[in-house]
Design a protein around this nucleic acid. Structure first.
Lengths: 286, 286
DNA sequence: TATAGTTATACTCAAAGTGAGCATAACTAA
DNA sequence: TTAGTTATGCTCACTTTGAGTATAACTATA
């Protein structure tokens, strides 16, 4: 390393969807919520391989889809113990978990309550924040307009990171030492990393069929829609969603039917049609 | 650094468009074409700031748009001199250069001749490569279908990296030590980094108004189209392009007219309308 | 000075895609 | 049997997109 006062680690944002709740795997770090982290070993042929290795050994999780997220290296990322600048290469990973998830998983929307536009309470929270930022005036106001929309509630899902950064700069987050504090804070800038992951995955599902990594082999269209809604934080028009999925050739019916949990007409079980990758340039949802 | 046998540096893919030729800034490294590189200093508050600093001091270029590209860390990235694993955080940067560019700039399509679908010769090169890969059978054939399209020539511009990787694995590139070799090779995996940048910028221009970073303050719609075509490597329908740009609210007419280089009806000079950022969620081209 | 060549710009039209809603089918629970 | 619930089929207006025709406004040259 050119600079001896810098240390390198890797972090993973491991995502899963538990019913209609998107969650990420956390660990405890000095009493705070943190992302799992590991170290690149000489035996790791690639960084991605390294992530898979240490995630497996630390959590026992076999990762499905894995992609590099971002490398964080701001000067204020310092380890309290060693006092060295922490460089972190963060990855995003998707896992499918059959059983209900335990407490080592945190709900994404506990971290970012304002990002859940599915419920009206969450929307209220967003509106409150937006109005505060829109009052700010100047550059902040302009950026808030982009991030939250003129009305304060129509902000694009993919702008989750921009919203987080605006709130951080405005002192609305515990990490920034502000008085008012929205959402569950995390160790160092780990919540920012999580926000980066949320933005990334929201964008990705629109042009790549990655949602299926979060679903079982066979699923109903309602289950698929619920997962997409959970990640995007938005409600979708069921009929149009179905049209999109079917006309997009993303799924194939299996002929088998299951009855929905709360009763109602039985739904067909579908499976992902991987052939769609050869047929369409950007196969995604929404 | 946790691992003493690893060294860290940063690289920059600095892009500019010279007439209708997209170029990137290069340096000489052990007799080979390489990307400029620098080291993160303790005084650099952020990695991006570091890039701007050393690019300025090495090349005198004031960077416009800068974004993180990817962090490369495969085990086979080893420095011949020190024998240590090289970790590199790569950034992409856009600059506007008034004057013609000198030899320190390489044409993107000298590196990736098959990526230029504007000329029929370049398209022939792509077809030849595609057919070779499509013959491969098995997994390679399937991936080639995605990357190049069934016919071999309609591959999505944004899949430049996938095409590069397929060619690398098939031994069609000098870096992989293959017999046949397409395009100008570079030091280590720098051509792969450049391919990553090409894919990224091609995607980016479709939903963010970054092209304007490559143009002067005022420009004609033809100049704008030429830059977009240069980056995307595709010809566009002029009338529809104009409609897209104008109806998208991306530009504002200045009222001033200029006569095109080869004669013809004078064209109006336009400028970028930055207000579009507040009006549309994804203001871009194509 | 007429005419060909060149580029800019306006407009049309069909096809495809999208947002919203109505209608019906097929189940469960009371 | 009936209300409640979910799945699924279908329509319709509106927008977006791809492709083409037409015309305007210049330059260069016979």
């Amino acid at each position: 390393m050119s600079n001896p006062n810098t240390s390198l680690s890797t972090n993973a944002v491991i995502l899963a969807v538990d019913g209609d709740v998107p969650k990420l795997r956390t660990v405890d770090k000095q009493g705070r919520l943190a992302l799992p982290s590991g170290v690149l070993e000489e035996t790791d042929r690639t960084i991605q391989e390294s992530i898979r290795r240490w995630v497996m050994s630390q959590t026992g999780l076999e990762l499905g889809y894995v992609e590099q997220l971002y490398t964080f290296g701001d000067a204020d990322r310092v380890d309290a113990q060693t006092d060295s600048r922490l460089l972190s290469i963060a990855y995003i990973a998707l896992v499918h978990v059959e059983d209900a998830l335990d407490e080592s998983w945190a709900s994404i929307y506990d971290l970012f309550p304002w990002e859940d536009a599915r419920s009206s309470e969450a929307l209220m929270s967003r509106l409150q924040i937006a109005q505060q930022l829109l009052r700010g005036g100047g550059q902040q106001q302009l950026r808030a307009k982009i991030a939250f929309g003129e009305a304060g509630t129509q902000g694009d899902g993919v702008r989750a990171l921009e919203r987080y950064e605006l709130m951080y700069e405005a002192g609305l987050l515990a990490e920034a030492g502000g008085s008012k504090s929205y959402g569950q804070p995390m160790y160092l800038d780990h919540r920012r990393i999580a926000a980066t992951a949320l933005s990334r995955i929201r964008g990705k599902i629109t042009y790549r069929p990655v949602v299926f990594e979060l679903l079982p082999e066979r699923f109903t269209l309602r289950e698929l829609q619920t997962v997409v809604e959970a990640l995007s934080g938005e409600r979708l028009h069921t009929q149009n969603f179905r049209r999109l999925v079917e006309s997009g050739g993303l799924v194939a019916g299996t002929g088998e039917m299951v009855t929905p949990p709360k009763g109602g007409r039985p739904a067909e079980l579908f499976s992902f049609r991987s052939e769609v990758l050869f047929e369409r340039p950007k196969p995604g949802l929404k």
